[in-house]
């Protein structure tokens, strides 16, 4: 009886299945080489950072994105995703130089394939995808911004780092402790075709 209850509880708890992304999705990096941003080698999780080149909140957090990518290198795969279809390649290249991004794989998500695959809505948003495609974490990087126009002088909650540590330890990732503040990613129809 007890076991049956337990199973029932487990079943009801998991009625909302975790979102699963198609990890085979391939996109060219900035040099034209194909990447699979959602599929890392071995059992490593894949991490995406969604940014837009002129979002002040995203730009201020790039140094932290670089640090996280460096700190977890060899344990997870990191990709920086420009979520702006109309971004000119020259502007993108300048952004890469200005913010010293040579060390991190970057892709230009012109058709919002990645945006849709993982349901990203804001920049800078971080997404952690497990080897089986399960989206383990989606949300803010930390609590630098808890509200618009009010950056914290001292960051006290490192949501993405905590999620990554949990995932690497085989644990479920804790949910972000606050909203992801930044610039909304407009739907593709929100862009005027040129």
């Amino acid at each position: 009886m007890k076991t049956a209850l337990l199973i029932l509880t487990l079943l009801t708890a998991s009625t909302k299945p975790a979102r699963v992304a198609d990890t085979s999705l391939a996109l060219p990096n900035l040099n034209g080489h194909a990447l699979t941003p959602l599929h890392a080698k071995g059992k490593q999780p894949a991490v995406l950072f969604f940014i837009t080149h002129d979002c002040p909140v995203a730009n201020k957090m790039i140094p932290e994105m670089r640090r996280i990518a460096k700190g977890f290198s060899g344990k997870a795969q990191f990709t920086l995703v420009y979520a702006e279809p109309e971004l000119h390649p020259k502007v993108l290249a300048k952004h890469q130089t200005d913010f010293s991004l040579a060390q991190i794989n970057s892709v230009h998500d012109r058709k919002h394939q990645l945006v849709r695959a993982v349901g990203a809505t804001v920049t800078p948003e971080a997404v952690v995808v497990l080897a089986n495609g399960v989206i383990a974490y989606r949300g803010r990087i930390n609590n630098f911004y808890e509200d618009f126009g009010k950056p914290r002088r001292v960051v006290t909650q490192h949501d993405l780092r905590d999620a990554l540590k949990a995932v690497l330890a085989g644990q479920p990732a804790p949910k972000p402790r606050g909203d992801c503040i930044g610039c909304f990613i407009p739907k593709l129809s929100g862009y005027k075709s040129k």
Binding site: D54, P56, N59, C183, F184, P186, K192
Partner: peptide, 24 residues
């Protein structure tokens, strides 16, 4: 400011964000 708001397209693609930051 980090981006221009000088024409329709500049404003349209940030419409939701503009609503949020002006309301706040």
């Amino acid at each position: 400011a980090p981006f221009a708001l000088l024409n329709y397209n500049d404003v349209r693609k940030r419409a939701r964000l503009i609503v949020r930051v002006t309301k706040d």
